[in-house]
Every structure is written in structure tokens, then in C-alpha cells.
Design a protein around this nucleic acid. Structure first.
Lengths: 222, 222
DNA sequence: ATAGTCGCGTTTGGATCCACTTCGGAAGGA
DNA sequence: TCCTTCCGAAGTGGATCCAAACGCGACTAT
């Protein structure tokens, strides 16, 4: 319609990006249906790229698909989220070790800047964005597609429960997060993969355990 | 064509299953292109379900997609396969621990039967099928979709290199595999997740190291 | 009054058709 | 002779149209 065809990126990718952002931002929420025609009209595209986009998101674990019944955002139980966090404890130190030698100093500076903004006091939505950008940023040097893709999937599928947890508990224990991030950053700067991996695994493990103390995060939703 | 429309399974799933079997069976091989029209004509379907199937397989890591250039089976380097095996060392013991309490005795008997057939002496193609069925079977009790899907992906993307390795080295050290499988099976029967996890990690690690001693597996391919 | 059944609307699944990009080859000029 | 450029074929991306399946509501019969 309007002159939006500036960059000829594939429509299916554009749709997928939009839907991903909407789901991660909390606009859709677990258990909610995603109707093809709605999305198509809303994004000004045909249903076909929407279908392909939904297949991609299904691959990323962001939606689940049932034959003749359409797509919906999956609803996870506490145990499932717990195991996904255990997977993160195992995989992310590996991704970090792969990334460390390739990580440019300038990039580490940028990550430190993100942490500065986190400590400056931001709202929950912004914190979730920054935290994600910070951690995934530390894996930016990892060239193993399978590993980075898997880690992203694990982050994506649990995003909603991180938000619910933050909304439930408030910023009271944010100082712990900040301390862990600072220690992690320092180890990254020293290119010390052992230290960095230990801090990282501890950071994820502590979050997992705190999550398990708040079952309300998984019970009461939209 | 023929009356194959017995069960009305979605065409896209049928296409995906067929392609997956063909790629895992070695019919397509790394670096090879997968043209939509070819597949569509060959399976008697339109190009649309083929496109959706390719998107699913892309999600499973079996093909990679480039805009306006189509899909091809990815070609992995030695380091990439090495890291994927490290991921397996970390994740599969977790999947096994999740699976063990739910695994029925009858299922364990069936897995032992698979190992019997492996030891009876089979060709490489059959061994690859049995080995895959054996290991993934031990994770059959794991109810965490993200974990089982990830493990399957890791198996899928490295299948071709396992085949190349077997063809290169022959069945000389098969007794090691058999011993490891037997020890693993025994620990599984005892529902000992610590022992089982240790044997499993060792099994994967040994394979990874042997693979790394044979760079020819990654160099010479059609 | 309630439970079962029929039927219509909504939504997804699939096929055919058209447009755009890419790659290979041939022709022309330096 | 070799490089450049243009053209055609092939293949992918996208849109519209048609068929099939699920869900909900109304109606009927017991």
C-alpha cells in the first residue's frame, strides 16, 4: 500500500519478526490463539506469508500448531520451565566459552553500557529487553548456529514467565542481579571462560530456584 | 495418484516426513539443493505444502534457507560438529534423568532388543537407524518438549557425519559401542540416573573425540 | 426441561496463477 | 582473446480462490 517496500525483505520474515516481538513483548500471552487472517489484515499481507511465519515461530518454540485448529502460544508448567532453566545452565556457559575469544572489546563496552542502564532504574518491560540484549550479546561471538539458535529458543519460550515473576516480586532483589552481571562482565573482560561460566551458571541457577518459589507465576494468567 | 489418501494427515506433514527420512537416510547429503518443484512433483503435491515442510525442516536444522535461492542441506565443519557433540554431552544426561522415572519396563526390554540386533551384526545404514532408535528411545519418558526437540535436532544435524565416520572406520571398534550400550542399559534398568548419565556422557564424549581424529569425514564429500 | 443432533459460520489447508529475483550463456566490443 | 553486458530460462516469493474440517448455536424429540 504505502511505500513500505523500501527494503525488499521477505514478507514472511517481516511477519515473523513482528509476531515474535509481539509475543515476547507480552502482547499475546500463553494460551492465546493466533488467527492467520487477523495477522494478515493487520500487517497488510496475504495469509500465505503468515502461515510460513507461524511455521518459523513454531520452530522457535514461540507458538504451537495443531492441525485444523490453528496456532496458539504454548502454556508451560512449572516443571517445564525449571528444566528449560537447567538446559540454560548447561548450554549458556558453553556458548559463552565459544564466544569469548571472538568478542570485540568495543562490544564488551556496549554490554557494560546496557548494564549501566539497567542499574539506572528502568521499568520491567525495559529491563527484560536490556537483560536479554545483555546476555545474548555476550554470546555474540559464538559462531555455532545450532548453539545460538537453541539458546535463543530457550530464552524466547520462558520470556513470559520472567515478566510474570518480575511483576510479582518487584525490584527488591535487583541488587543481586546487578552484582552478578558486574562479576560476569569482569570475567568476560578478562576473557576468563572458567570464571565467566561459573558466574553465569550461578546466575541462571539462582533465578531458577527463585522462580520455583513462586508457583503463582504459572498458575494465574490472563 | 493411487488411493493413498487413506488417513487424511496433513500433506505438509507427509512431505516433511518424507524429506526428513530422505535426508537422514543419506539420499540428499550436505550442500545439496532441494528444489521445491522437484519435491512437489515427486510426492504428487503442490508446491505450497513443500514450502511449509521446508520451513519445518529448517526449524529442525535439516535444511537451511536463503532468500530467493532456495533450501539446501547445511554443510557443517569439524568444529561445529564438535560443539554439537558437547551440547549432546550436556543435554542428553538431563533428558535421560527426566525420562528414567517414566520409562516402562516393557520399553526397556524393547531397547534391549534393539541392542541385541545391533550386536547381531548389521550394515551401516541399519546400525544408524538402530542406534538412533536406541538412544532416543531411552529419552522416551521425558515429557519436556523443548528438551526432546532439541536433542532430536542435534541428532538430525550430525547424522550424515556419523554415517561418513562409520563408512570410513568400519566396524572395528564396535565392541566399545556395545559395551557402553550394555552398561547404559543396565543403569537404566536400575533407574540409576547418576550412573546412566555418566555412561551416556562418556559414550558421547568418546565418539566426539574419535570423530575429531578423522578430519576426512568433514573434508571429502560429494 | 434436557439432551442429542443437525446445520451454518468461521478458520485452516491446498491448488493454481502471477511477479520478481537470480543465474547461466551468448553476443558484442575493447 | 578476454571481459562486459544483456537477455532468457529457471526457480522462488506472494496473492487470490476453492475445499474441508472444527465449533457453536438453534431446533427437535423424548
Amino acid at each position: 500500500m504505502t511505500a513500505e517496500a523500501v527494503a525488499t525483505v521477505a514478507a514472511s520474515r517481516r511477519v515473523a519478526d513482528h509476531l515474535r516481538a509481539e509475543i515476547l513483548g507480552g502482547g499475546i500471552g500463553p494460551g492465546e490463539r493466533v488467527r492467520q487472517e487477523d495477522i494478515a489484515r493487520r500487517l497488510g499481507a496475504s495469509r500465505l506469508p503468515v502461515r510460513e511465519a507461524l511455521r518459523m515461530l513454531e520452530a522457535e518454540g514461540l507458538v504451537e500448531h495443531e492441525a485444523n485448529k490453528g496456532a496458539r502460544v504454548p502454556r508451560l508448567g512449572m516443571h517445564e520451565v525449571d528444566v528449560i532453566y537447567r538446559m540454560r545452565e548447561l548450554l549458556e556457559p558453553l556458548a559463552l566459552a565459544e564466544s569469548l575469544p571472538e568478542l570485540a572489546d568495543a562490544e564488551i563496552d556496549r554490554l557494560a553500557g546496557l548494564q549501566d542502564e539497567i542499574e539506572s532504574g528502568v521499568d520491567i518491560a525495559r529491563f527484560l529487553e536490556l537483560d536479554r540484549e545483555f546476555h545474548l550479546g555476550t554470546y555474540g561471538g559464538c559462531r555455532i548456529e545450532q548453539l545460538t539458535a537453541t539458546v535463543s529458543r530457550l530464552w524466547n519460550t520462558t520470556q513470559h514467565y520472567r515478566r510474570a515473576f518480575m511483576q510479582l516480586t518487584g525490584p527488591g532483589r535487583m541488587w543481586v542481579v546487578n552484582a552478578e552481571h558486574r562479576l560476569l562482565l569482569d570475567a568476560v573482560r578478562r576473557r576468563d571462560e572458567v570464571d565467566a561460566g561459573r558466574f553465569l551458571a550461578g546466575h541462571i541457577r539462582r533465578t531458577r530456584i527463585e522462580l520455583s518459589h513462586h508457583p503463582a507465576v504459572f498458575g494465574g494468567l490472563s
